[in-house]
Structure formats: C-alpha cells, structure tokens
Amino acid sequence: MRQVTIVCMLSVVLLAGCWDERLYKNLAVISIAGIEGHMGDLKAYYAYPSSPNDPTKVAIVESEGLTPRDVRNKADLKTALTLDLSELSTYLMAEESAYDDIYPFLDIFYRNAQNPITTKFAITKGSPKDFIDVKKSLPSGLGEYYQEFIESVERNSIFPKGLDIQQAGSMLFEEGQDLVLPYLNRDEKNQTPIAEGLALFNGRKFTGTTLGKRDSLFLVLAAYGKADSARLSYIFKEEDKKTPLTVDIIRYKKKIKIQEQGKSAKVYLKSTFKVNIDEYPLDHIGEQKVKNKLEKFLEKKIKSETLKMIKKCQDASSDPIGIGKKARASRSKIWKEGHWKEIYKTLDFKVDVNVKIIRSGILK
C-alpha cells in the first residue's frame, strides 16, 4: 500500500506541467489589428512591438486572404513568431467592409477562448492601415493608445461606454435596437485619430450614415444615459450681444412612451436635465429670472437638436435608441405588424425637455 502511495505521488509531480504553455519569446503579441475589403478579397494588418524595451515601436504584418481566419493564418507565415491576439486591445474595420454583414468578420473572436472579446471595436474612414502605420512617436503602445483614446471619448458621452466586441456581437442579434460603433477619422498632419462620431447600423450592416459628435452625444444620452461627463456649448443671443454659454450635465433622466395610432404611433421622449453652468461671463446669474431665461433657451436648443438627431436615425432606418425593444416589450401592435423598420420611419416623435440649473459655479 505504501508503494502504491509513493507511485501515485510521483505521478502527480511528473504530470504537473503546463500542457498549453506558450512562451512569450515565441510570440508576436498583437495589440491592434485592422481589416478591409470584402469576403473573398480581404486584407488585414497586425501590429506588435518590435522592440522589447520600447513598446511604442511596432512592426506591422500585412496579409491577404479569403476570410478573416485565412488572412490571420497567412499573416502567421510572414513572421518567425506566432501571432498572439490574446492581448488585442483595438480592432479597426474599414468603412467599406462595414457595408457588408459584419458578423462574419467577428465570428473568429467567439470561436477561440484565447481571443479577447473585450477588445474595442471601431469603424475607420479609409484604410485601417493609415491608422496603424503611425510614424510619429506615441506616449504608449499603439493598441493601448487607441484603447485609451476611445475610452476618453466614452467618458464624455460621445461613444457608448464600455462597448466592445462582445457587446457589439450581441447587439447584432437584437431585433429591437440597432448597433452604433465609434467612427474614426485621421489627422493627417499629426497622424492621430479623430473622433468623428458614431456609425449607424441597420441590423448587421452599416447604413452609410454617421452622426457628428454633437448628435452622437444626444444619441448616447437617449440610448445609454450619461457617462462620466457631458457638456453642451451654445452662443446665447440677447439683443445685439452674443454670450458664450456652456453647461455640464450633472444628472439626466428620460422616459419613453409609445401611443399607437392605427398602423403607426407617436413616441413621446421626455428628458430631464439638471445642469451646472460651466461658462457664462455675464452678471446676475444667481437671479431666478436670469436662470429661467437660460433654462428656456437651453430647452429650446436641446429639443431642436434631439429631434434633428432622431430624424437622421429614422432616415437611415436605424433604431439605436431602442424604440423597437420598448414596443416589443409592451407587445405593441406596431411591433406585431412584422415590418418594424418601415413603421419606425413613419413614427411621429414628440420631445419634451426640462432643464434645471442647480449650480452656477463657485462665483456669484
């Protein structure tokens, strides 16, 4: 019995190894990747640190192939190292590719446990190679730089906070709400990304319509709520005087109600803003009549801009606010008609905005 115990213990020691061990010295750890083209004719780009002492210096592997898996396999054959995407922080897709069904581009991320699904996902204006092949020195690694850039825009309520490949994949199968993705342009002079706004999707395909930063902020508020901060700037006109006015949105609440009218409906969006005055150089801001005047001005402006944003979404047959989800949850007849997107474009939106200035800064 004693001999059996000794043999068993020795066996455990001998078996205690990492069967799936991967040595970093054999890996090219990809921090950012991009893809463009169409199924059957794809081109991909993978960037990894070229210097062990300086993560800001990167090498880029380009490959062509039929499918996303094919281009990744062929990229592996172009370097002495094995491409490792387990630490991929940012995935870029060319605008032209997003006009196709984008799920096939994402499928490989869900098939392998080593592929991260918390990767940031964005659409680029032009080739993603231009965004990856950056000659200028950056303060951090390329993938980390893009991740932090996108997260900074998220904190300002212009991109949906926390949106990644996992959430994007789930929303592609959501019948009552359409996906939006960060839309990036590029500063040619400084070779740095520019947050243009949001790309609107209809189902799994890019509609070709993008919202600017201002419209994107109102969309994110209505669909996802305020992130860490949200600011609005206007020029307040009174008689012949033009005064800068900036408010910081402290709290935001919304309520959506659908009122059916035959085969269409009215949608009531009621929004409440509690704001702090960040910028307003005129005197007497502490007086109630001045506050009332500014509140009415802000309500009119916000209502107009919200309606403009909704109209752009309707024209693009994109429902990023999730009106369809609410209609389905309430078992509305307009959802049961079976052609929601056609009905969605005919909906009459009524926007009610209430603004309350709760703080006016540290000086009175």
Rank of each mutant, 00 (worst) to 15 (best):
I32W: 01
W19M: 04
V180L: 05
G225N: 12
L138W: 06
G197E: 05
K364H: 09
D315T: 11
V275M: 03
A16V: 09
I165A: 12
K263T: 12
G322E: 06
G208W: 14
A47R: 00
Y145A: 09
E260N: 13
W340F: 04
I250C: 10
S63Y: 00
Q314S: 14
L347Q: 07
S317R: 14
M93S: 04
S157P: 05
S271L: 13
A327R: 09
L198R: 01
I334C: 03
N185I: 11
P128F: 10
A28K: 00
K336Y: 04
E64W: 12
Y234I: 10
L307R: 12
I249T: 11
K135P: 00
A327Y: 02
E144H: 13
Q114Y: 12
Y145S: 09
K161W: 12
D133W: 05
L92S: 02
T346G: 09
P244Q: 15
V247D: 08
S271I: 12
M309P: 03
N354C: 10
L184N: 01
I258E: 14
D20A: 00
A223S: 14
E305C: 09
G197M: 02
D348G: 03
V7R: 12
Q147S: 14
D248M: 14
T119W: 09
P193C: 02
E196L: 06
A265W: 02
I334F: 01
S360R: 10
I334N: 01
F218R: 14
P160H: 15
L198M: 03
T207D: 13
P320L: 10
G17Y: 03
K43M: 01
R331F: 06
V61A: 04
W335Q: 06
A44H: 02
I117Q: 10
K205C: 13
E196M: 07
K308F: 14
T79W: 04
K266S: 15
L363A: 10
K341T: 15
L245C: 11
E287C: 11
S229L: 15
V29N: 04
K257T: 15
K303D: 15
G262F: 04
D319C: 09
K189M: 10
A75S: 00
